[in-house]
Design a protein around this nucleic acid. Sequence first.
DNA 1: GTCCAGGTGAGTG
DNA 2: CACTCACATGGA
Length: 289
Amino acid sequence: MNTITIKDDFDLEKIRTSGQCFRVKRIDIQDADCPVYSFIYKDSNLEIQESNNIKNDKKAKHFNISCSIKEWENVWHNYFDIETDYENIRKEFKDDNNFTDTCMDFGKGLRILNQDPWEMLITFIISQRRSMPAIASSVEKLCNTLGSRIECKGAISDNTVEFFKFPTPEQIYNADIKQISDCGVGYRDEYIKCAAEMVISGDLNLDAIDKCSDEELFNQLCRVKGVGTKVANCIMLFGYHRCGRAPVDVWIDRVIKQDFNGENPFPKYGDVAGIIQQYFFYYKTRTRK
DNA sequence: GTCCAGGTGAGTG
DNA sequence: CACTCACATGGA
């Protein structure tokens, strides 16, 4: 176990409930000040726990992590988007209006994660017309049924933990359609299998399109059945870190109508529109106002 | 039972 | 282009 220090603009509980990641687990440990959070990225599993032992620094937080410092730097530092200065972004748009200020204050500590594009593609195909808990449930079933099992040692919560990787395109394509359907994905089962076929055949190269412009990347993603404007923007924001993209779902639609007089505010946020959107989304879904 | 959820594809005008 | 409608399922 190792210890790291991060600027006080990083909140694990907010990230877990922010609606961009659906496999983060919170493990409440008896007699511990802070819960342990478990994250998965490709083959890697991270357990991370805020440490309350060192409380002398107000501008920084300290965390115990299950991985090596090297793995933190190689994988998780980028995953959590540590290099981006969110405080500076919030400062830039402060006093824009009351609502924006409230949301940015409320959501301090959120990050836009750098997640696996393939996982984002399937996860957000599943997401349409579903609640966040329902999405999480389907994704977990998909992993547990079709994904490869991994055992890793040196965790915080226990000596060894097991987890399931997100299923590969091959694992999904080779699965019986009923296995996919049994994950509770409804009519989206065919979309999921289709997407896997496109990736396996090379028709859609998820690595190569990382180099594309926003417009071209958007168009490529929309070629997949079940991927429309909103889902494509989610994949771009959470899988390709295109922070100028602001997905408009039912919640953000309410923000535009209720809090901006029906006028879409996102164009004026430019290349951080997706980040501002995330503050709005988090506030709206948490408070349900 | 009813209503809603991080919407989209297909059909029509 | 804009508009309508069906769509499977689970949680509140």
